[in-house]
Design a protein around this nucleic acid. Structure first.
Lengths: 241, 241, 241, 241
DNA sequence: AATGAATGAGACTTCATTCAT
DNA sequence: CATGAATGAAGTCTCATTCAT
């Protein structure tokens, strides 16, 4: 049985890549010509603080939802004064945006890796499902936010775009599978991709809300069930997993 | 081919039944001892106003989300002063609660009707899907709210209960289908029901967000696709729809 | 000796005219079809509250300057909750704007009255000086704000316009006086009008700042001195430059 | 025609004299016991930085007004970190204070030079007007701040004092002129001096605000007009009031 | 001397809710 | 029933100032 190419590991934690570090500096005009060790260190520390705040924000958003979370909560969770948050982010909204942008980008990259692999379509789909569900195990709060607050921010172009791209990967994988004769050709690939995503999101939400048990055992079973349902339905013949 | 029992019509609009009319306003001083015609009329008018506000709230919530909606928006949409809202509801939260309670109850009742019918399990599932998707055609804004705001309000016991019951119907239908040998027995019925619901919600959300086309044609296709995917996957043999 | 036409009285208090009452209503869509006595009364009361806040704002602005004044100070001075201020005005800025708009308009109207009269040019000038200086006696705090905060809000088109018009009246009066042979023709009318205004403002500022005594006697003397200097100059004989 | 004594030049730029150099920074721990060449240099550099910040502050204050200017703006304009500002000045207020103190002192000194000269009173007045108006040509932003922010800072004792002294010079010149029979004796010298100052300030403000053209030609004309009006009045003949 | 991250008081504004009319 | 003026808690964000490096 072929396994998905998993260079980085399907379940590798999000955020393990390099960070696209925006300088937090408030006065952009300042001309920094020399970059001493101290400067470097300070940048490193600053980047650490930035992450500290971002991580705290994820925890708080996961706990109370974006709207109900106060800037002060985030700062408190991060153990800094709330003013500092505005050193690194322009607004509370910007914090959420950043969480979305950075993490969905990462997820998308992994999806595209899977898509580009030489697996058969059904294995690709399985790979994508694995990535998302296992990410939950690594950082449930992050996934909570990514899943729960998608709706709220429909008006924000950039992140919708990246999520849209994530959907598009699944749609392409399905369409390709139909072309290859692995999937039933009469289905609408676009709609089918939404069904797949919906199943994923629902289970994640169930875990997030504590309405579904989320032990290791359950996560494994969920993966199996979801793939079985989805592939069993899409497969032209009885695809046995 | 058996059709689901559809006395009221699978797509009958929500709210067409009789209302479980709570006294709309517990006006503290008014001593309602006699129930003259006038009183009846007044109650009728009051009930009308209550609906007016509720409907307005649904439109506003659908447009801006619960949190971003102001009481004044709802009142403005209903064409009444915002103070009046507090005659009929105890708070903004109560308005949302009421929307959930009344409409999910209605949906649940229809689901249970389907469950109680003598259809085979797959037809029951199809019936449930139809009910939900077609409700979209009748009142997309209502469904928007019912779907989008479910996550946010996890802390509200009552509505979770009724929604949980809706999930439970699907789970029981699936489990029964397995017992009857119509569905694959090795699947986790609970998780499968979540996948079904997820697919439904995702497509509804796509329509709500305007990211999926939602003409009559598309709704029909969505119904077909969803059922095909779900049943095709669950069916022991190739269930052809 | 001719006296300026003084129908309303050169020193009549500002704000004695009718008010251009903006309805304070926050939800503009509400269709008010019937206008009962109660509604009328409420509007009257509302207008009164509006004035209450506006007057309080003038006092506070005069005392501390616009920038240093907090919305809470204004509300406190008016004896209302600070939230109410936003019922009647859209922002702190709007309050200042309104003070400017309403009162400079009033002053301008009086200036134009004087300009339109049949007095000789020097008497018109004297009339204008009287209006401004005597307004100080009636409402020193108002004049304080009108004079002191002009600079701060240079970027606000409307009020600059109305003040510009006030300057223009003086310029026209001077130019007319030159044409009539009453004033020296070699002077630049525009610049001369600025000198006149400057003298006025400086004395007002002196009073505002408590650096010039401002009793009735002094106001009268200031009026005389200013007019004497402007019309006759300091020089004992015709000093030719 | 006698010309005012103009040893330094009536229009010499402010700040061209020696600086009353307060120790720029009372760095607590640094024990400056020895005064080597290096120390001297360092002091020179420090003084340069001080000026850098001060000049930047003037530009920023002129552009946005004191209250709306942020410390970060000043530092940014000066090209230094905002923390450094607090090495040279104790607060934002102190910066403004310093601008006032140093420059009004300078102006005052020049005024007093003129006062001490042997010119007739009218020439003295003309000399003072020239100094102020021509300073505008040399450093409009500085004059902007000195003129515009005077009112705001009534509570700051020291600078009011120095400005008061500047007023006093004019008053004394006028009074002396009356005693010498050059000026009309019936005028109130105090008030007249305010009128003169007012005319000056208004024209300066007009230039600052861009509401009066401020080319070389216009500055010359303004000088003439102001002196003409003040000394000769608008009236063509001796208008007796 | 110089930096800029960090602080936190305090500003403006919003809006759910109450209540006199 | 109905209105909308009134309240005030609570939220986001700004910015002068401090301080470790």
């Amino acid at each position: 049985m072929p396994v998905p190419s998993d260079a980085r590991g399907v379940g590798a934690p999000l955020g393990s890549g390099t960070w696209r570090c925006q300088t937090p500096c408030a006065y952009p005009d300042s001309t920094l010509t020399e970059r001493s060790i101290a400067t470097r260190d300070r940048q490193g520390v600053a980047e650490e603080k930035r992450r500290l705040i971002l991580d705290a924000a994820v925890r708080v958003f996961a706990r109370r939802g974006f709207h109900a979370s106060r800037v002060g909560d985030i700062a408190g969770e991060a153990g800094v004064a709330h003013g500092l948050l505005y050193h690194y982010f322009s607004s509370k909204d910007d914090v959420l945006q950043t969480v979305f942008r950075e993490n969905w980008s990462e997820l998308l990259a992994r999806f595209e890796e899977v898509e580009a692999s030489r697996e058969p379509a059904d294995e690709k789909l399985r790979g994508i499902v694995k990535i998302l569900l296992r990410t939950w195990r690594n950082d449930p709060e992050l996934v909570t936010v990514m899943v729960r607050e998608v709706g709220r921010s429909a008006h924000l172009a950039s992140q919708v775009e990246v999520i849209g791209q994530a959907f598009a990967v699944v749609e392409r994988v399905i369409a390709r599978g139909q072309a290859e004769g692995v999937f039933r050709p009469e289905l609408d690939a676009r709609l089918a991709s939404w069904v797949v995503y919906g199943g994923l999101e629902e289970i994640l939400t169930g875990w997030v809300m504590g309405r579904l048990p989320d032990g290791d055992e359950e996560v494994a079973r969920a993966e199996r069930t979801l793939v079985d349902v989805v592939l069993g339905g899409l497969g032209k013949t009885d695809v046995v997993t």
